[in-house]
C-alpha cells in the first residue's frame, strides 16, 4: 500500500491529483508524494487487524430506533430568486452560470 519507491509515490500522487482535479506541479508532487507515503505508512496498522465478518458503519452512528431516514412530502417550497442563486458565481450573464466552452460531456 505504501511504496518505498519515490517515483511510484509521485506517480500515485499524480494520478490521484488528476482524479481530484488538483493541478499540482512537479516539486509539489514530490513533496506530497513523500508525505503521502509517510501518512499511509503511519496508518498501516489498519491492515493488520482482523475484520473478517465485521459489519461496516456507514454514515454517522445511529441508535437502532432511528436507523432509517425520514421522508419529505412532495410539497413545493419556494426556490431562490435567480439573482440570489447567481450572485456568488464568478461568471454569469443574469440567466446562466457561464463556464469555459466544453463539449463532449462529463469525464
Amino acid at each position: 500500500m505504501s511504496n518505498p519507491d519515490p517515483s511510484a509515490e509521485r506517480e500515485l500522487v499524480h494520478k490521484t491529483a488528476a482524479l481530484a482535479r488538483l493541478s499540482i506541479g512537479a516539486a509539489e508532487e514530490a513533496r506530497l508524494g513523500a508525505q503521502f507515503a509517510r501518512i499511509l505508512g503511519a496508518f498501516h496498522s489498519l491492515s493488520e487487524l482482523n475484520v473478517e465478518g465485521v459489519p461496516e458503519t456507514t454514515g454517522g452512528p445511529r441508535p437502532a430506533s432511528a436507523a432509517f431516514g425520514r421522508l419529505r412530502a412532495d410539497e413545493p417550497r419556494a426556490s431562490l430568486e435567480r439573482a440570489a442563486a447567481l450572485v456568488n458565481a464568478p461568471q454569469q450573464d443574469g440567466e446562466f452560470y457561464v463556464v469555459p466552452k466544453t463539449v463532449g460531456g462529463p469525464s
Binding site: 500500500m1 489498519l46 491492515s47 487487524l49 475484520v51 465485521v54 459489519p55 461496516e56 458503519t57 456507514t58
Partner: peptide, 13 residues
Amino acid sequence: DAWYRRALKVRTL
C-alpha cells in the same frame, strides 16, 4: 477495500 471499507469495519470495532 483495503482502506475505506476496512476503515468502516474498524469503526464498528
